[in-house]
Design a protein around this nucleic acid. Structure first.
Lengths: 324, 324
DNA sequence: TTTAGCATTGTCAAGTAGAGAGTGCTAAAA
DNA sequence: TTTTAGCACTCTCTACTTGACAATGCTAAA
């Protein structure tokens, strides 16, 4: 258990830290001598909460120190006037489309925090098929379109080996529509597999091929994850090692990696340094959100030395407003 | 007019240049003494084709030197076996969708050249409206969808102030469809303005509002420019000044700037350093392409010291294949 | 026109010195 | 027992120096 003074010292070091913090800079504020602070710092270091870069440097917080701070010391941080105003502008304007709110908020958070923001949205949640359509594009291809009742539209050009028959296409699409309009996106795969396929089976080979193409497309749609990113280049403000920057930027392009950002738990979750398997000097503050029509994760990615209190409060505000 | 030897020296310096090139490294190949080469280099420097980083350093090519090289010395560069193979894989496979070919080629060029590739595509070229559709999403909004005969699909959620009437929506959409199916994308604006609007004018106020919303959406679609980018992070391989990198990466995010990449002239065009108003150390090799269904520009962006011959040949190959 | 020789000029890497910041330890004071 | 003052010590950072090296320009001879 840390003493109140130890807590105060840890808090000050973390909130002040741009370069290593020495005992002198703290003792004035605490009203005791630098030697006393040095003692306390020594204790904190033995507990693994602080670190030194070399034997005679000031202290910097360790990952464990940040962890302690985030778990016990951090207090909600009031949003600045300016931030609040801009946020309200986004959310209070007359009912914007959801994706608009999201991308605008991301842009804003990235400016306010100098971090990179990634949002992963999954449309399948509470979306029902409103319509499927196919429009011939050439002799051998059609544009396939799926619309959900929440207004999400997905399309793909489906290419066939042989020449297509417009009437057959129409028949297949009508059939699919008949069975799956109103189906939740998550269940489309099953429904096509177990209810529509048996019917198709008895019809001609050609129609079956078409069905397969649509089936593949629809399955992709129901698994579809939209990715937004804002402030990608803010990483350059936080680090000055080009190699490190490159490594991190490359991860932003890596689909597999991005997918794994998806958050399981509820509420604000904070991953410090190595905890996020991202980079030892990078932290992630993320949260799940859930609206009718979409469910997803927003992740704020920045240097380990970030203003956790501010970032967390900001994210909470966004998620709360998104959810209503 | 440059002597053959001067040309040879300039060519060697440009094609060898990773760090400043000294006279000694060249004289062996040319079969004359280093002093002779120094004389020639001095002349080339007086012509403004070479530069020195300081008084006793080797020479590096100036922008003017690169210009001369590109205009007079450069020869088409055969593509490597490996590159050709991969390119053929992209283009010879059974009729992929155009956007697929483009994004795959971009990815490949960025790998082969270590440059950043941006493509600006404009769908409006030779695309005709195949269908317009509107699907109610909530009490006050509809998802509007436009499909062209070449398979491009665009959609937007249109939000109204008042509660919508599904039947009225349907009537408006039917009307729009009746008049503009088959219209080239470029002419949609005019057609709506001069042929459809007069009819609407006599109908109820409500329908007019709806028309306006669609009108705006359709105009946006016809001006729509798709942007693809690949190898964005390759910039980090070419420079090591974080500030410079940041400046360039920020430009990649700047919509206005990206739009201006659009190429007017035909064929391969090369902009060296400052010529591209991008950055004094950045060059751009770009070309227009034109297919049925889309017309656009592909730009290869890299350091001034790039392999112009290789990059230009590669781009030519891509554009030629895209156009057939 | 070309070459050899040489002084000159600048970069780069390694090493040195001094200032500064911060620590740990010890012994004295509260 | 806790806090403080004092001091030696350690390490970084910056500026400066030094020597090796690379390339140059110039001059005079081939």
């Amino acid at each position: 258990m840390l003493s109140e003074r130890q807590k105060a010292i840890l808090k000050m070091i973390i909130e002040d830290y741009t370069k290593p913090v020495g005992s002198k800079s703290i003792c004035d504020i605490l009203g005791c001598s630098s030697a006393t602070v040095r003692h306390e710092m020594n204790d904190l270091e033995e507990l693994g909460l602080l670190e030194k870069t070399h034997i005679s440097s000031g202290r910097i917080p360790s990952s464990k120190g940040y962890r302690y701070y985030v778990d016990h010391l951090m207090q909600p941080h009031d949003l600045s006037e300016e931030a609040l105003e801009k946020l309200e502008q986004i959310f209070k304007s007359n009912k914007p489309a959801l994706t608009d709110s999201i991308s605008k908020s991301l842009e804003l958070i990235s400016e306010l925090t100098n971090c990179t923001i990634i949002s992963l949205g999954n449309t399948s949640h509470e979306n029902f098929i409103a319509k499927v359509e196919a429009i011939p594009v050439s002799d051998t291809s059609v544009a396939a379109i799926v619309v959900t009742d929440k207004g999400h539209v997905e399309n793909r050009t489906v290419v066939f080996d042989e020449k297509i028959d417009i009437l057959e296409i129409k028949r297949t699409v009508d059939l699919i529509n008949k069975y799956i309009v109103g189906t939740p996106l998550e269940e489309v795969g099953d429904k096509l597999e177990f209810e529509v396929k048996p019917i198709i089976k008895e019809s001609i080979d050609y129609q079956k091929k078409m069905f397969d193409a649509f089936y593949e497309f629809m399955s992709d749609v129901s698994e579809n994850q939209s990715v937004h990113m804002a402030g990608r280049n803010n990483i350059l403000k936080s680090f000055d090692d080009v190699d490190k920057i490159k490594r991190i930027l490359d991860k932003f392009e890596d689909r597999e990696f991005i997918k794994n950002i998806k958050e399981k738990e509820n509420g604000i979750n904070i991953y410090i340094g190595g905890e996020s398997e991202f980079d030892p000097d990078v932290s992630i503050v993320k949260s799940k959100y859930r609206t009718n029509g979409e469910e997803g994760t927003i992740a704020i990615i920045g240097p380990k030395r970030m203003q956790y209190d501010r970032v967390a409060s900001l994210l909470k505000y966004i998620v709360d407003n998104l959810e209503e």
